[in-house]
Amino acid sequence: MSSITEAKAAIASLDGSDLGGRELRVKFSADMVTGRKNAEALNTAPKKDIVFESPHKVYVGNLAWSVRPEDLREHFSQFGTVVSTRVLYDRKRGKNRVYGFLSFSSADELKAAMETSGSVFHGRTLLVREVINREEQ
């Protein structure tokens, strides 16, 4: 949820409802962790940025180690609105992996971005592929 008001509305409408013959229990995560309401935790801003992704998503491979999400956003924004960018990070090695994901606001923007597959970015030949959502198949 994007606000405490939306979360309270979701709890009010879903808690105790039936899903597939089972009763749903919907509570704030602070309630589940401590077993009691933690008003301070419920009214604070989320600690992590929420990433919204669209269904128009691409995989970008063969990235240089130094590429950051901002670099990808800047490069691919020429094809339209970039909703989200993510470069995966390898905690074990302490550096970026050589691939990432981008979401666009429309299918046309996604198609334009896919045409960059084979172009050079930060000294590396990009591999750009559409991400197929397996849930839709």
Score class of each variant (00 low, 15 high):
Gly21Phe: 08
Gly16Asn: 12
Asp71Ala: 10
Leu127Asp: 08
Ser106Glu: 00
Val82Gly: 03
Gly20Thr: 01
Asp71Val: 05
Leu63Tyr: 07
Thr5Arg: 14
Glu6Leu: 07
Val82Gln: 02
Met32Cys: 13
Gly118Ser: 10
Val82Ala: 04
Arg68Asn: 09
Glu53Asn: 04
Glu74His: 09
Met1Ser: 15
Ser66Ala: 14
Pro46Gly: 13
Leu42Arg: 08
Ser17Gln: 13
Val58Tyr: 00
Val67Asn: 08
Lys37Tyr: 04
Tyr59Val: 00
His75Phe: 15
Ala9His: 11
Ala9Gln: 15
Leu63Gln: 03
Val87His: 08
Leu14Arg: 12
Ser84Pro: 05
His75Pro: 01
Glu40Phe: 10
Thr34Tyr: 13
Val82Phe: 04
Asn133Lys: 07
Leu127Ala: 01
Ser84Thr: 04
Ile11Gly: 11
Ala12Arg: 13
Pro69Asn: 05
Val87Ser: 09
Leu24Asn: 06
Phe79Ser: 02
Leu63Trp: 06
Asn96Glu: 00
Asp31Glu: 15
Ser17Cys: 14
Gly118Tyr: 09
Lys8Val: 08
His122Gly: 05
Phe121Ile: 09
Asn133His: 07
Gly35His: 12
Ser117Leu: 03
Arg25Trp: 01
Met32Leu: 15
Leu127Glu: 11
Arg22Trp: 02
Ala10Lys: 09
Val33Thr: 11
Phe28Gly: 07
Ala41His: 11
Glu40His: 08
Asp90Phe: 02
Glu135Gly: 06
Val58Ser: 00
Arg73Asn: 03
Gly16Gln: 13
Gln137Cys: 10
